[in-house]
Amino acid sequence: MLLLAFDTSTPAVTVALCGDHGVLAQSMDVDARRHGELLAPAIARVLAAADAVPGDLTAIAVGAGPGPYTGLRVGLVTAATLADALGVPAYPVCSLDILAAGHAGPVLVATDARRHEVYWAAYDAAGLRVAGPSVDRPPVVREWLEAHAGYAVLGDGALLYADEFPDNMIPEHPRYPAASALAHLVLPDAVAGLDPEPLTPIYLRRPDATPPGPRKQVTPA
């Protein structure tokens, strides 16, 4: 098994290469505006570091968002086309699941969705997602937390709106979805040869566009 994992749903581009005995190489670049320039070279670098070539890959894992659309699409189209060219499966994973992975106990993950909103999801003690992924204003998330006791909170979105999440914040946590964590989430399915879900980005919002109203007159009335 040689699994290539990457996530582009946040300002970071994270890439990891995973073999049968764990992570062979990984990289992280943080630049919210250059995902399209950073991802392919990072993949080439990680492969070279492990003395591997693309043809050696047996599966791909990709963070499916939610996240800013343009960067997110760079990851998803890269996964789709690599899988197409190499004839290997590509497994999408909700990027919030990657952030939650490795945190024992009930946890809520919130990332920055801009426009005064956060992307969020909540996970029970067994690590199962019990709410989300959703996009909401922070007070909506706080209401959910008030109705569901015992949840720790992590993520950039929670830090950004710290006033809304005063009590149960986990201050020390990876800011960006680690590709190595993504690889570990996908590894069992990839080893078992399961069919992947379709590579559908998790947008959670419709495109900003409204059909035009009645034609505006150009002649002053």
Partner: peptide, 13 residues
């Protein structure tokens, strides 16, 4: 960006 990322992935693969 969608086309450029796709082309890079094909070129790489």
């Amino acid at each position: 960006l969608v086309g450029v990322a796709a082309a890079k992935a094909y070129a790489l693969a």
